[in-house]
Amino acid sequence: MRTFYYVHTGHRVGLDRFRRASAILNCLKDEDITLLTSDYRIAQEARNFGIEKSVGIDVVRNIPQIAENGDRLIFDSDEANSVMLEDMRNYFSSFIRISDNKDDSKADKEFLISPYLEGEGICNAVVVDEKYFGDFKKDVNLSYFFGDDDYEKDLEKYFSFIEDLHPHLQLGFYYFLDYETMLEEKFPKNFEFDDYEEMIKRSEILLSASPQAILDSLATGAKPIYFQREDYTKEFIPLFEKLSIPIIYEYNKNTLNKIINNISVIKYEDIDQNCNKIASFIKNNLNL
């Protein structure tokens, strides 16, 4: 009986779920778990995140080509409809689903990890890697991370949103080669994809559309600002409101300026270290 962890990744959905999986798998280093991604490229890169076993499977329906009936699965994706989810619950001996939907509910034959829900068979937790908790030298005033994906080149379309702030730019994973070259020229102060951890730890203020980056930043004691991309889920909004994280919609420049000018008085909430809690929940319910 083997254990798998599936995450939805790709050039139109980014790497937020992958970064979350990396955090969880780092808490389960002693367990034999194979990561499955819907993108071959990040599967090859996974070793640089400390993930020893990873396989690209292209689409969620290919999971049974790798896993066998009776195996165990951790599932982080919104690709599956109710019928597919029920099939998975029946196919795997143990099934843990990660949910960001505050209106979700736990089904029979599954366990849930959620920042919103509580109850039997549910782990109420926000996932952040342990490495982001601590005291860090904040020598970068402002960093800007649009996200790991920008297929439509929206970052370029909205340069006016941030260019006069002269931020350090965090480059994403799924950027076109010529596009990335242009961005590096436009923003001479930049962080490469591999420098994400350094960027998170060094940035005093992080402006980002990546929900996971926002949570990682908050853990370091920084002052993150979330802006809602039109093509990204809005499921994190209630969580960010609870944590007193400022939120910007529709590239509202005036709102951004007001937030930055008054950021010293914003009382951000602390985020808990949940590594042991999540690891124990997974081990107990997958019988690891």
Rank of each mutant, 00 (worst) to 15 (best):
D78M: 12
K137G: 08
E68G: 10
A67K: 05
D148P: 00
E79V: 09
Y144E: 00
E120H: 11
Y91Q: 04
G56Y: 09
E118Y: 10
G56E: 04
F145P: 00
P64F: 01
N81Q: 06
G119K: 12
G121Y: 07
V55N: 04
I122P: 02
N124T: 10
D104E: 15
F133T: 01
D135Q: 12
E120V: 11
V126W: 00
R97I: 12
L142C: 00
G56C: 07
N81K: 09
S99W: 04
I96Y: 03
D100T: 13
D58N: 11
S99P: 01
D87I: 14
V140R: 11
K106A: 08
F75G: 10
G119P: 06
D139P: 02
E68P: 00
R72L: 03
N124E: 06
F145Q: 01
L112P: 04
S93I: 00
D108E: 15
V55A: 05
D76G: 03
K131F: 00
S54C: 15
P64Q: 05
K131I: 09
D71N: 08
K138R: 09
E110A: 06
I96Q: 05
K106I: 15
Q65A: 12
M84H: 08
F95V: 10
K106Q: 13
S94P: 00
V140T: 05
S94H: 14
V83H: 13
G56Q: 02
V59G: 01
F92Q: 06
R61I: 13
D71L: 05
I57N: 04
V140I: 15
F92N: 04
L142Y: 01
G147W: 04
F146E: 00
M88C: 13
V59I: 15
E79T: 10
G119W: 07
Y116I: 11
